[in-house]
Write a protein that binds this DNA or RNA. Structure first.
Lengths: 178, 178, 178, 178
DNA sequence: TATGAATGAGAATTCATTCAT
DNA sequence: GATGAATGAATTCTCATTCAT
């Protein structure tokens, strides 16, 4: 009932509007922003938000799921380096997502979505190693760890483009293995 | 009156107990933990916490200051690689500190303490470059960015020792410049 | 959403009950009385009070507005002397209102309502001067000043009917100009 | 122990400084100002204030007593009209005193001091009636009521000199009985 | 289903008062 | 006597969640 998409057209529309609003609000103010603010931004009543997402954590989980799915999609269109650049670049705009990936007290369980992203990155890594641009000794876990770390850093560090490029350059050099 | 350390011995003791309690509580639950909980853990009344630190942010700032000062001290006893390892290793236990370094909505201004840490790391970097173990093209900003990123990653990613070692290995390879 | 009166019937009823309770509570204990006490007297939860009046000052302002509006209404049904008598007579029962008219630290901005009262009294004054029962040299500002002063005095002085009559008699004699 | 002046010279000095500070602080911020602020202004520790005045109300009562005594003194040097002018003129600067005369929730019992003031004003009234400048039908209670009312009005109404003069003129005309 | 009002458990902060130093 | 740290009840305000309309 909660997971599956609602039947009625207006309900589906509301669900989408709520997700969009939530993404925007939590991106701007972090997960501390109130659900009321999300409702306001979505143009629906607070009750509607809670009907679609019984708890705030459910709403946050839904955002994450959607965001991760988008990342998976984007991963298929780039090589590993470009993907890193892309993800890190938009990390700062996704306060909520990064907070969530980070934990930040909220209890959000979305193992599947994370798993899918891991798979996608795994494919990029394999490709890069096939191409010889990443050393063979590197494994997926540390690549994921680096990706997550850099997102956090980018988000909270307020990096400008230049700093981001230089920081990624160090990590890329490390991945290439010299 | 409020800024300097208190004169009386019992007040100093309480101040320290509050800081210790706050560090523990915020480390465990993040900055969302209540000041009341800190007071409870410190074994003092809530008013005592607010007498020492007029706002919650002041308390958080004090924790950060102390932690950064300790890091500066620790930086002098290690080379850059060992320092990275050390800091990242204990990052996971310092939820609050990392949250704060991260921003997380709380308004905590401690520019001096951060500056001192930057200086200390700068010295380690210079030394490492003198020793030829880090490539000359690397600059302090990206080193700080990497350090902060890895702390975040370690904190929120729940890395085990092995993953941490492998992740740092990639970054260290990048710093060495191959 | 917050400003206008609520749409739903039950909300309107609650709003009125809260205003009534607040008027009673603040009349009895002054503006220092707690919002919690108002909620209790109104038979609603504390959150409901704050939903209707986001800050305590908003609640106080709303009371004042309502009271001043009632005064304006009452001004139209009496001559200036009767109006003075009437207002001063009930002043003692309106601790909060008088406190507020008085300032008392609370920040309550209701210029319009005050302006309307001033207009109403201005009309009474003009009428009285037309009728020749008040000397022509008297102006509105001092009439308002006297009215406010007497309210304060009546409130805090604990006047009985007799003292009130005698005090007003002096002021009325002054207004008549002998 | 509490009422009588303390024996030791420094204690007497402290008592006076505390009273001065309290008068200034409460005049500026009203009776809501904290006792801590009074201590700060007096340059003593909070404990010293409470040693001299076991409760805040005791402190307020002491201020009132002193102020009323001064008024009594001043009453002997003027005629009734000048005294009214004088008292009303400085009312605005004596927020606390007026608040207290007013009641404002604080429990301050100083019947003697008020009685003395009443006596002094009684003498002025008798003199004025002897001189034929105030009509014989006016009695002391309404004169006191008018004085108190006008102080409140002046304090909270923010009267300028002109408005004050015009307002007093009406009351004086009433007292003269035309 | 949607609405939005009501609930009530916290959370931060203040301050009169007490008491150890 | 003076100091100033500690206490803790009280207060304002927030917000996730429930439920009547």
């Amino acid at each position: 009932m909660v997971d599956g998409p609602p039947r009625r057209a207006d309900a589906q529309r509301n669900r989408a509007r709520i997700l969009d609003a939530a993404e925007a609000v939590f991106a701007e103010f972090g997960t501390r922003a109130s659900t009321e603010e999300v409702a306001r931004r979505a143009g629906v009543a607070i009750g509607t938000v809670f009907r679609h997402f019984p708890t705030k954590d459910d709403l946050l989980a839904a955002i994450m799921k959607r965001l991760l799915a988008k990342l998976v999609e984007e991963a298929t269109e780039r090589d590993l380096f470009a993907f890193f650049r892309h993800v890190v670049a938009q990390a700062a705009a996704k306060k909520a997502a990064v907070d969530l990936l980070a934990g930040s007290g909220v209890d959000v369980r979305i193992p599947d979505a994370v798993e899918h992203l891991r798979d996608a990155v795994g494919r990029l890594l394999a490709q890069a190693q096939d191409d010889g641009v990443i050393t063979a000794s590197v494994r997926l876990p540390e690549v994921m760890a680096l990706l997550a770390s850099l997102c956090q850093g980018a988000l909270h560090g307020g990096w400008d483009d230049h700093l981001q490029a230089r920081t990624l350059a160090v990590v890329f050099a490390g991945l290439k293995g010299c």
